[in-house]
Amino acid sequence: MTAALRITDLQSYYGKSHILQGVSLELGEGEIVTLLGRNGAGKSTTLKSAVGALTPRSGRVELSGRDVTGQPAHRIASAGLSLVPEDRGIFQLLTVEENLRIAVRRGSPWAMSDIYRIFPRLEERRRNGGGKLSGGEQQMLSIARALLGGPKVLMLDEPVEGLAPIIVEEIVDQIRLIRDAGVPILLVEQNLAVCRALADRHYILEMGRIVHVADAAGFARDPATIDRYLGVSA
């Protein structure tokens, strides 16, 4: 069966530093999969290598069976692989609605009405400037902009970092709605409660290598492995 996203033996460098050392993972249709690891393990580098923000030295990135390895970032985005970065990257001086409208892509299955259904806060604040939003609202806006491009796969880098628990719960529900709407999600996240609540499967990355793979049930039964690789009490 063709995976929504398949990464095979990815080798990536920053200068002479060998960061990704043979990373392989798969994301199936209808799945949420997490990529976990300590700071500096290579999680964000994996996402950047997949979307063309960093050109891998070798390996393969396939989107619905199509090889997109090393293509320019705009071509990979057009093919349907979308990354919501940790810094969110919204336009501070534009309103919420202006931020959204410039992201609309012809032929996308996502309309503004879909966005406002999943993110009602954005509709309430559609005339507010991007810089006037809370951190959680900015995160919602960043995810919503990515959806308007019609992604086949959505990758989220630390979407709930630093957010209040009530906002975290809201974003968790929104991520589920996006998956249920047919967009598989690769999630990098430090909040293990969020990962457990959302993910079908988990990969753990350490020093640029995948060191553990588990489904949700196996992950829940194995606190010793979680503590070993993530350095937290399960």
Rank of each mutant, 00 (worst) to 15 (best):
125 R>E: 09
156 L>I: 13
156 L>C: 08
181 A>V: 10
108 S>E: 03
40 G>I: 15
190 Q>E: 14
114 D>L: 06
165 P>K: 08
17 S>N: 06
120 P>A: 13
194 V>T: 14
83 L>R: 06
146 A>L: 13
79 A>V: 12
59 G>L: 03
220 A>L: 10
36 L>F: 05
135 G>A: 10
177 L>R: 14
107 G>W: 10
53 A>G: 01
81 L>H: 09
123 E>V: 09
62 E>T: 08
37 G>L: 15
127 R>E: 14
7 I>H: 03
57 R>G: 00
96 V>N: 12
162 G>K: 12
104 V>S: 13
63 L>S: 07
180 D>C: 09
40 G>T: 14
217 A>R: 08
198 L>Q: 05
189 E>G: 08
103 A>V: 13
55 T>D: 01
192 L>S: 07
113 S>W: 12
171 I>W: 03
70 G>W: 02
206 E>Q: 11
229 Y>P: 00
38 R>P: 02
53 A>Y: 06
124 E>L: 06
176 R>G: 04
16 K>F: 04
153 V>I: 09
120 P>Y: 08
3 A>V: 03
144 A>S: 13
214 A>G: 09
201 R>A: 14
16 K>S: 06
95 T>G: 11
226 I>S: 06
91 F>L: 13
62 E>W: 01
202 H>Y: 09
86 E>N: 13
205 L>F: 05
229 Y>N: 01
167 I>A: 01
200 D>K: 06
19 I>A: 07
102 I>A: 13
151 P>T: 10
152 K>I: 15
55 T>P: 00
23 V>E: 07
173 D>R: 11
22 G>M: 08
220 A>K: 04
187 L>Q: 06
150 G>A: 14
71 Q>Y: 05
22 G>C: 08
20 L>R: 04
160 V>W: 00
73 A>C: 02
151 P>D: 07
4 A>R: 02
142 S>A: 15
7 I>T: 08
162 G>I: 15
13 Y>N: 04
211 V>C: 10
